[in-house]
Structures are given as C-alpha cells and as structure tokens.
C-alpha cells in the first residue's frame, strides 16, 4: 500500500486502539496476578454467573455483526444503515443493562471494589470496559442522529469505519475479559 492511500483517520484509530489494548492488558494482568491469591472473601467462582453473563456476552459479540452490516449498508447508500446502527446500539445497551444488574446483585451481597483483591481487579477491569461500551454507544447515537437528519454524507465513510473499528475492539476486549474472568472461574 502506498503512503498516500493510507487514510489518516482510520490509521489514527488503529494506533489509538493499539495503545488502548496495552492499557487493558495491564488491567487483565493485574486480574490474573491475583487470581489464585484471594485469601478470603468472594472469588469469581463464588460470586459470578457465567451462564447468564454468557448470554449477554453473545448479544454484545453479535453486535460486531450488526455494525458490519451497517457499514456495508452505508457504502451502498442504503437507509438500512440506520436500522443496523440502531440494532447495534440496542445490543450494546442490553449488554450494559445486564452488567448493571450483575453489579447491583453483587453490591447487594456486599461484594464491592474495596472488599478484597478479587473485587478490586474485577470491578476495575469490567468497569473500564463498560466505560468504553458507553463511549461507543454515544458515538453511534451521534451517527444515528446525523443519519436521521440526513446530515451524514458519503464522505463521512472514514468516521463510520473508525467507529466500527472501535466497536469491534470493545467486543474483542470483552471476549478476553469474559474468558479470563468468567470461563476461568468454573475451572
């Protein structure tokens, strides 16, 4: 690929996601470091429900498909773009609701961020991921709003693609987080 063909917005997004993955790797390493080291109090095994969260995980991961379809519709200039973006937002929001419910249940059982190292690493890692989901939802709401007002032009393609990269990244991080925290908890 020649340098001139490189799209600077997409490239910058990829570099940004590269730096973000380093950030998440350190949070995940902190979780792994303390995984076998919880001396007392709640653990992943005792306080999490991998099946229920597994369903929410499936919903979140399927939104990578819907945003891909949205992107394809955008390139064709089809109004189906709006529906697919709306579907992606719905998936992301459902996931967040599921996570909030889980948080509420855990807080109810007095499993908090300051309870023990499991609580600290768990809430920090999933909390930062949830913040990233929220940012993604806001970005897609902006896209949807622009599209409904017919303000999204064909040359906004790089913005749509960059947001889609970001969303795939958020899903990928969750796949790693889910495997580390939930699947590892059952042993």
């Amino acid at each position: 690929m020649r340098a001139r063909d490189l799209n600077k917005t997409r490239f910058a997004m990829l570099l940004f996601l590269g730096s973000e993955s380093v950030f998440f790797i350190f949070l995940i390493v902190a979780y792994i470091y303390y995984h076998g080291d919880v001396r007392s109090g709640p653990t992943a095994h005792s306080s999490l429900d991998p099946v229920k969260t597994g369903i929410y995980t499936a919903i979140l991961l399927s939104s990578s498909g819907t945003i891909w379809l949205a992107e394809r519709a955008f390139r064709r200039g089809s109004s189906a773009f709006r529906w697919w973006i709306a579907a992606t937002i719905a998936c992301g929001a459902t996931f967040l609701c599921g996570e909030m419910k889980e948080y509420a249940k855990m807080l109810h059982e007095d499993i908090t961020i300051s309870r023990n190292v499991f609580g600290s690493t768990y809430f920090t890692l999933t909390g930062f991921h949830a913040a990233h989901v929220t940012v993604g939802l806001l970005l897609m709401c902006v896209l949807l709003g622009l599209s409904i007002r017919n303000r999204l032009r064909e040359d906004h393609g790089e913005a749509v693609e960059s947001i889609s990269y970001y969303w795939h990244f958020v899903d990928l991080v969750w796949a790693a987080v889910f495997s580390t925290i939930y699947l590892w908890s059952t042993r």
């Binding site: 303390y34 609580g119 600290s120 920090t124």
Partner: peptide, 28 residues
C-alpha cells in the same frame, strides 16, 4: 498506557480503597 493503567490502579487504591498494591489488603 502502562503508566496510565498503573496510575489508575494507584488512584483507585488511594481514593476507593481498592487492594492493588497495598500489602495489608492482599495486594502486592
């Protein structure tokens, strides 16, 4: 990003009483 992540954890330790680096709380 490694520094940023570490500083986030330290800040949480200090302000929200997490246990990342505090040996009395099981941290390292």
């Amino acid at each position: 990003p490694a520094l940023n992540a570490s500083q986030v954890m330290l800040l949480l330790d200090r302000e929200l009483h997490t246990r990342f680096f505090n040996p009395t709380g099981g941290g390292s």
